[in-house]
Design a protein around this nucleic acid. Sequence first.
RNA 1: GCCCACGUAGCUCAGUCGGUAGAGCACACCCUUGGUAAGGGUGAGGUCACGGGUUCAAGUCCCGUCGUGGGCUCCA
Length: 630
Amino acid sequence: MEPRATSTPRWVWGIFVFPMGGIMAEANVVPYEETKIYRIRHSLAHVMAQAVLEKFPEAKLAIGPPVDDGFYYDFDLPRTLTPEDLEEIEKRMKEIIKGNHEFTRKEVSAEEARAIFSDQPYKLELIDGLMEPDEFGYYIDENGEETKEPPTISTYTQDTFEDLCRGPHVEHTGQLPRTAFQLDRVSGAYWRGDESRPMLQRIYGLAFEDKKDLKAYLKQREEARQRDHRKLGRELEIFTFEDEVGPGLPLWLPNGAVMIEEIEKLAKDMEDRAGYKRVKTPHVSKEDLFLRSGHLPYYEESMYPPMELEGIRYFVKPMNCPMHHKIFGSRLRSYRELPLRLAEYGTCYRYEQSGELFGLMRVRSMQMNDAHIYLAEDQFEQEFMAVIQLYLEYFRIFDIEQYIMRLSTHHPRGLGKKYVDNPELWTKTEAMVRKVMQENDIPFVEVADEAAFYGPKIDVQVYSAIGREFTLATNQVDFSQPGSFDLTFVNSDGVEETPLCIHRAPLSTHERLIGFLIEHYAGKFPVWLSPVQAIMIPITDDHIPYALDVATRLREAGIRVEVDDSSERMGKKIRTAQKRYIPYMLVVGDQEKEDGTVALRLRSGDQRNDTPVDDFIAEAAAVIAERRYE
RNA sequence: GCCCACGUAGCUCAGUCGGUAGAGCACACCCUUGGUAAGGGUGAGGUCACGGGUUCAAGUCCCGUCGUGGGCUCCA
């Protein structure tokens, strides 16, 4: 088997997760907050803040927590930081560390804290958050996290620097590794993550327990960049972006189109077996549809603006659901038809903010592996699980082992804004999903304030090569739209009932899935998904006719094959094919021509000479048909 | 959208103090007909992202626009 994306365990939201039987599970280990590396990173953030404050005495400090690979601290500074500033700050940090300054903790009252930080407006705001719960009963701690318990206010001091902080820290700066950290980059970040608040400057530092861990991390990061789908996508001619077309609007090249077609074939196979029916719907519709669906009130900022013709406003669809709802409602439905599963690879358009675009992973035009399942409430558990099982089957096919299922719930503060205003149904449907997941032993993490506007969902979170987190697949409950669309079915008592709806997209969008797969397989796709599956490499021009002959037989067997008839020598042809990660290289010369064989070279470098053409075809066809990874 | 950085040939990148552009790969043609990761030669290819400005002179300095990237916000 070829090497693929490494499956290293990692910290996510304070829990330690790792691949286990295809599912990320919570390990029985100490929480991040209690580890040595957490204290080191947290303490380094304080040391950095001291260095920054010495350099800019008028600096206003925000927050500075540890993260996955180090720490950051946000500052309001009189001017923009330069790379030279970072070097200087890092140098000063090393001096501070050498001083062996003790970290001392002090519990203080709110009044004392306000006095200590009287010239630090952000700290004063944090103290307010620690003291007084908001309207929903949450206190906000100094890392911006919500908590129900009123926290104890404490400060930590090292050398000349005192910071509002609950800790923990190392005992003294001498315990900080001077050679295992480095300031990494500076970026902008809104105060409190709120785009209406001031933009601060965030300095990120990398930090590990010792130097070799830092070096290993930097090396791994460099290797990850080699796997970046934006780089490989260009080199392997899968997609392109063109300025005149527009940002976030990918053009699929022939190789990418092959992959799309193979994925759709897979989806169709799976959905046929799972009882889905395929539908097709238009890309645009009248405004009325999206008013009724709730997209215009809740989602308009992500939609392309309307176009008006003959006094009627039309929108390009950001989701397929309203169209599918209209199909459900196009005639009277019986309970005998449920669950009714309508599937479509629908093309949607979302006006994502320009800064949010990211290669293929975040685009403005997308083809979704969408389906809407209409069902009675008592069918919910079974159907929701069937969808989860479908996900797991897909992940098995794609060798996806590193992911997290996330139950995304609403937050009371978003009711009537981000979320449909019906607290009872939120609570009820969230409990339903939680119960299904627990009863079926599917590990998940629960995160508030991440739901869709119409209901809770299970999101499957994955990571791009450079470590950015994305929702790949999603399985959503909708308790709102069926009612808005007056969707009903006649139950066994002859009474009309409103169905529930499940929105599901296990294969995400073509864009995000292929972007992810490029990185996941590092360009070495399974044979069935490879744009070119085999390449004929004639040793001299004399062997081209035989190569063409073999290619024809492969093509008749459904294998995508090319013939390299360039005037290069064989070594060069192999090198070129190797760089394209073509699974099968078939070298043919006098020997093979005479025997009716090929010299088979795999992209792993494995070599199988004298393979009869029929044997190769039989084997390759089986690998392709079974979608095996070889 | 916001903060910061970047934009030179299809790709990866040089280009000094401001003096009107270079390499490798890829591509085309010719020679070479070779047994498992780069054969040789010749050639074509650039309004230095776009638009202004400063200057005798701008790839180089300044401003704006567009695009890309690192983040923030947001998300399939």
